[in-house]
Structures are given as C-alpha cells and as structure tokens.
C-alpha cells in the first residue's frame, strides 16, 4: 500500500466535521445578516424617496398654480393682479430655492444608492467566494471518499489474504489481523466522515448559490438604476443651475417644470427598484434560512447514526458503492454536469 493515494486538505475527524458544519452555518448566518442589513438600508432609501416624491408633487402643484396665475387673462385676474403684485416681497417664495433643496435631496439619495451598489457587489463577491469554497471542499471530500473506499477494500483483501496464508505463524497472523482490522475500521470511519462532508457541501451549495444570485440580482438592478438616474439627475442639475438667475421670472416656469419632471423620473425609478427588490428579498431570504437550518440539523443526526452503526460488512459494501458513485461522478463531470 506504499503507492496509495493521499487524502487532500485537512485530516477529517468527527470533531473537525462538526466544526466545519458550524462554520458553514455561521458563514451562512452572517451572510443572511448582511443581506438583511442591506435590505434595511434599502428600506430606508425607499422611505426617504417616498417623502421626496411627496415634496416634488407639492412643488409641481405650486408651479402649476403659478403658471395658471400668470396666464390667467380673466377680468377678475386683471383687476386683482396690481394688488397681488404689491404684496410684501417677503411673502413670495423663490422657486430656485425649492428646486435646489429638492436637487440636494435627490443627489444624496443617488450617492447613497451608488455606495449601496458597491456594498451589494462586495456581498455578492463574498457569497461567490463561499460557493467556490464549498465546491473546493466538495471536490476534496469526493476525492478523499474515493481514497478511503479504496483503502477499505484493500484492507479487506489484505484480511482475506492473512486468513488464507498458511505459512504465517499463528501469532503473526493474529498481529496482522488486529492491525488490518484496526486500519479497516479507521478507514471506514474516514469514509463515513468524508461522505458526510461531501453531503454537507452538496446541501449548502444550492442555498449559498441562491443567496449569491439574489444579491447579484439586487446589485445588477441597483447598478442599472444608478446609471440611468445619474444621467437624469445630472441633466436636471445643469438645468437648475442654468436657470437659477432667472428662476423667479414667470417665463421659466415651463422649463423648471421639466427639471422637476426629470428629478421625478429619477426618484420614481428608484422607488420601483426598491419595491421590486424588497419583494425579492422578502420572498427568498426566509425560505433559504429555514432550509439551511433544517438541512444542517438533518446532516448532523444522520452522521451520528452512521458512525454508531459501522461494521465491516457494511463498510465494504459502502466502499464499493462509493467507488461506483465516484466513477459515475467522473463521467458526469466529463459531461459537464454540476455536482
């Protein structure tokens, strides 16, 4: 057995496997917490946007009222105008002032969304790293499972050979038998452990992948929104700055309304985005969480039972099955199928 294959990665024991299981669950819990935090941020952006939209609507109504007043050619309006024109200068509001305040709010929301988009990207990358780690560990576990299976079968053969070897003295035969039985049981436990490790990875890959896809989708949508809103907000900013000097002349009311429309468009796009992605997270996260929790508990219970019930015949059958499955996996891998 000198040319035998070696195990990859960390030497596995029951304690190590339990630790790994805790680590995977902990990383998943942390990722869920992070995504939930992102969701809270997103909800806050949504609330602020909603208040911004209300203000925009109010300003739009004010502009409409002004335009109506300026274009009112009725007799009553003509009679009243000289008196209203003499109202105290303090009572009149500046449209430019209102627009600048509104632009400031929209601009803050946009910068916030930009920073948030980077947070989402980082979160998606970390989740991808987790998926990569699980795939790597699965690969190692499958390799090690195959190595353990081969060793179990080799030891079984060795045991048969020892039993059939008449040239050995009884003491030597007994010594070798003890040694091989001990090794066979050790490798049988390793086989179970690697099988459980592979199962652990298999179970966690789909939820980790789903979480990654959720965050990735959030990031893609947010990045797209930021791109289009930036363009609209910049256009509105140029218009607002350009019109500032004349902002209180009635002639520019129409153009100011267009600025408001541009800001409104940007904010509505964000509101739509927030609503869509909130729904996505609210649907996906609780389901994933419950699934990961249930599967972790089930894996641990199954492993306890397997380890308690190890015997030689069962190990041999299991080792043969493992090698068959490993061969099958290799074929599927060649065909490009996911583990």
């Amino acid at each position: 057995m000198s040319d035998r294959q070696h195990y990859l990665g960390e030497q596995l024991s029951h304690a190590v496997l339990q630790r790994r299981q805790r680590e995977v669950a902990e990383r998943h819990r942390r990722a869920m917490g992070q995504v939930s935090e992102l969701l809270d941020n997103q909800k806050q952006i949504g609330r602020e946007l909603s208040s911004g939209l209300t203000t925009l609507k109010r300003q739009r109504s004010e502009l409409d009222r002004m335009e109506q007043q300026e274009t009112d050619s009725s007799l009553l309006a003509s009679l009243v105008r000289p008196f209203t024109a003499r109202r105290s200068a303090l009572a009149r509001r500046s449209i430019a002032e209102g627009l600048l305040r509104q632009y400031e709010q929209v601009s803050v929301r946009l910068r916030e969304a930009t920073a948030f988009s980077d947070e989402l990207k980082l979160c998606a990358l970390e989740l991808q790293q987790e998926v990569d780690r699980l795939h790597r560990e699965l690969g190692e576990a499958l390799h090690n499972q195959r190595v353990a299976a081969e060793r179990v079968l080799q030891l079984e053969e060795a045991l048969v050979e020892v039993d059939e070897d008449a040239s050995l003295r009884p003491e030597e035969q007994a010594r070798r038998r003890d040694r091989f039985e001990f090794d066979a049981r050790t490798e049988a436990v390793s086989l179970e452990l690697y099988k459980a490790a592979a199962e652990l990875c298999r179970q966690h890959i789909p939820p980790a992948r789903a979480l990654r896809d959720t965050v990735l989708q959030l990031h893609e949508e947010m990045a797209q929104y930021v791109l289009s809103a930036t363009h609209t907000v910049n256009a509105a900013g140029r218009r607002i700055q350009g019109l500032g000097m004349l902002a209180d002349a009635p002639i520019v009311v129409q153009e100011l309304q267009e600025s408001l429309d541009e800001l409104n468009l940007a904010m509505e796009a964000t509101a739509d985005y927030v609503e869509r992605s909130s729904h996505l997270i609210a649907e996906v996260l609780p389901h994933l969480s419950a699934r990961v929790q249930a599967e972790s508990e089930a894996t641990e219970a199954a492993l306890e039972m397997e380890l308690a019930a190890i015997d030689r015949e069962r190990s041999r059958v299991h080792a043969e099955r493992t090698l068959r499955e490993a061969a099958q996996d290799e074929i599927e891998s060649l065909l490009g199928k996911d583990p």
């Binding site: 632009y103 400031e104 601009s107 803050v108 910068r111 900013g237 140029r238 700055q241 500032g244």
Partner: peptide, 10 residues
C-alpha cells in the same frame, strides 16, 4: 459646476 460641487455635499 453646481452639480459637481453638490456631489461632495451629498
């Protein structure tokens, strides 16, 4: 421009 300065304020 106002919008460049405003980005820093935001």
């Amino acid at each position: 421009t106002y919008q460049w300065l405003e980005r820093a304020r935001s």
